[in-house]
Amino acid sequence: MTTSSHSIPQSSASSSDAPRDLQAEERIAAFDVLIEAIASLSQAGSLPVTGSAVRLEMGRLTYGGFDPKRVGYKRFRDFLDDAEGRGHVEIDRDRPGDVAVAIPGSSPEAGFTSRMRSDLWKAFSDWNPRTSRFYDLNEDRVVTLPTEPAPLEPTRYTEIRKRISENSSGFVEIKSISRQKQLDWMRDFALLVTDPEVSRVLTEALKSDHPARYFVVVLRSFPSLLNRWHNTLRERVYAEVLKWRDSDSRLATVQIDQMDSSASPPPTQLREEPVGLAGTAGRRVVEGTQKHAHDLDVVQFFASQTPGKVAQSRSPLRQRLHEAIERMPESELRKISIPVGYLFED
């Protein structure tokens, strides 16, 4: 395996298995998008996060490409149920109406309780360079549209462009927080993690071809850190929105927080626990191997990216993996994805 490429290695398969393998890869990608959608809605203050809201957000994040049938499910609910069975999400089926969906262990920490309006959150945190964002002062809301007009584009975009052209003073442009700035926030966060091994794994993930995605994948294995990152991100985005509002007198009356605070449950303080690869959170990764195989692959991969690493002794994570594998039945072992090269190395 060439470690410098920073792409997660996949197991080899025969050509006859290619369609099935492709669907499995797309299913893994769909689970990643599911987590991203829930995190986006949660950070924006849209609590509780409902199943229907998650499906709409997944559609937005994939430009309409997500379809549960494409990844092997008859209904979106079947997709959610399988995601819960694999440990990716928690589903609250007791609430009236639509189910609520959450990332396991993602109750917000105490300290930052403001819940930002979802339209402002998306406008500032989505770094898509092909999208323009404006605040409509008359309608008191954010409007977004593709930066460059296209032939046969939806009528709503044409109408927004016309309104902005005819009444430019009624709109204030929003500059989203750049990808680079948000990645810098992630690097700062990784450096402040007290466990040196976890800090190193996060730093390596940020050197990959998809740094933001794998940064979050690694954090999912450490729920306390994931919550802390969500709080940090909310605070920094909130600060940027405040600076934007203060920069223009026309924005003085803009309400940043969501109006109905009753929709947000009171924050709860998570019990502090060890968050190292050898601590409680690391143990959770190993014990949930069959449910978190992809996340574990990612953590293992970036944990191996240490230049000049001396394999004189087995790391705590490797030790626990070996112990877990010894206890697992063969049926579960067959579900683990291992790069085929490792099976034949001396």
Rank of each mutant, 00 (worst) to 15 (best):
R314I: 12
V99M: 13
V275P: 00
E36G: 11
R156M: 10
L219V: 06
T3I: 09
S178K: 03
N231I: 06
V237N: 02
I38L: 07
Q180W: 06
G51M: 01
I38C: 14
L233V: 00
R187F: 03
D184E: 15
S46Q: 13
Q305C: 08
I91E: 07
S107Y: 04
F301M: 01
F344R: 08
V33W: 02
D184N: 15
F302P: 05
P196Q: 06
F31T: 00
P196M: 07
L242S: 10
L34C: 04
A29G: 05
L270V: 01
Y238R: 11
S176I: 02
V285H: 08
I336N: 07
G279T: 13
R187Y: 01
E90M: 03
V198H: 00
V286D: 07
T131S: 08
D126L: 10
S221E: 09
E153R: 04
E323C: 01
G276K: 07
D184I: 07
T50Y: 10
S169T: 11
S247T: 06
R283D: 13
S315A: 09
S16H: 07
A123D: 02
D260H: 13
S337M: 04
A83F: 09
P211R: 00
L251N: 07
P154F: 08
M259H: 13
E204W: 01
N138I: 11
R283S: 15
L226K: 02
P146R: 08
S331G: 02
I28L: 03
S168P: 14
D188E: 15
K309E: 15
R250P: 04
E36R: 09
A263W: 10
L61S: 02
L80S: 03
H6K: 09
Q255L: 12
W121K: 03
G276H: 12
D260Y: 14
S4G: 06
